[in-house]
Amino acid sequence: MLILKLPKEQKEELTTKVQQFFEEERSETIGSIAAEQLLDFMLKEIGPHVYNHAIHDARKVVLERMQSLEDELYSLEKPVSAKR
């Protein structure tokens, strides 16, 4: 699977958030390179799991909608009288 490639602006924003997390939650200061490397690692290692979960959720929604559509199509059928 391809590694998620983020737009530059989004990657910079997330790198800043990683730095803020370390500062606020761990009282540690990390540089932008370390934060970006951590972000890249997380995307590589956790990204596929999140992606697969999203696909599972999407599949569930599509199947539910298809079932609903099938029910609606059956309700549109006209009764047919048997000829003798």
Rank of each mutant, 00 (worst) to 15 (best):
D71R: 00
H49M: 09
E28V: 03
P7D: 11
L69H: 10
Q20M: 09
K60P: 11
Q19L: 10
D57W: 13
I33C: 10
K17R: 11
E25S: 04
L38R: 05
K5N: 15
I3N: 10
H49A: 09
P79Y: 04
A54D: 05
M42S: 05
Q37C: 08
L6Y: 12
D57L: 13
Y74N: 02
K60H: 12
G31M: 03
A35S: 08
L76C: 08
N52W: 02
T16V: 11
A34Q: 08
E24L: 02
E45S: 07
S27M: 09
S68D: 15
H56R: 14
E12N: 09
K11I: 13
E9Q: 13
L69D: 15
P7T: 09
E25K: 03
L69Y: 15
I30H: 03
L6A: 04
E70A: 08
D57N: 05
K11C: 11
H49P: 00
E45V: 03
F22S: 02
G47S: 06
Y51Q: 05
K17N: 07
R26L: 15
K8Y: 09
P79R: 01
P79W: 02
Q67W: 15
M66C: 10
Q67N: 06
Q19H: 03
E13K: 14
A35Q: 06
M42T: 11
S32M: 03
L6H: 10
V50K: 00
K78H: 08
L76E: 15
Q19G: 02
G47H: 06
Q37S: 14
V18D: 03
D40C: 03
A34I: 06
E45T: 11
Q19M: 06
L39F: 07
E64Q: 10
Q19Y: 02
K78T: 05
L14Y: 04
D40R: 10
T16H: 14
Y74L: 09
E9L: 15
S75C: 14
E24I: 04
E13G: 05
Q37R: 10
K8L: 14
K44M: 13
V61K: 03
T16K: 14
L63T: 00
K11Q: 11
E12Y: 08
L76M: 11
E36K: 07
L76D: 12
V61Y: 14
K11F: 11
E64M: 12
S32H: 11
I3Y: 04
S32D: 09
F21G: 04
Y51F: 07
G47V: 00
N52I: 02
L39S: 04
A58G: 07
Q19I: 13
H53S: 09
T16F: 12
L73M: 13
F41Q: 07
I55R: 02
P79I: 05
L63P: 01
T15M: 06
K5T: 08
K17T: 05
I3T: 12
E72G: 03
D71G: 12
F41Y: 08
M66I: 15
L14K: 01
E24P: 14
D40I: 08
L76N: 12
N52L: 09
P7K: 11
L63R: 05
A34E: 10
E24G: 01
G47Y: 04
K5P: 10
K78N: 07
E9Y: 10
E24W: 01
A34D: 04
E45F: 09
V18K: 00
E64S: 13
I30D: 00
R26P: 01
A34Y: 01
Q10A: 15
L39R: 03
G47F: 00
L39G: 01
L14W: 13
A54M: 03
S75W: 15
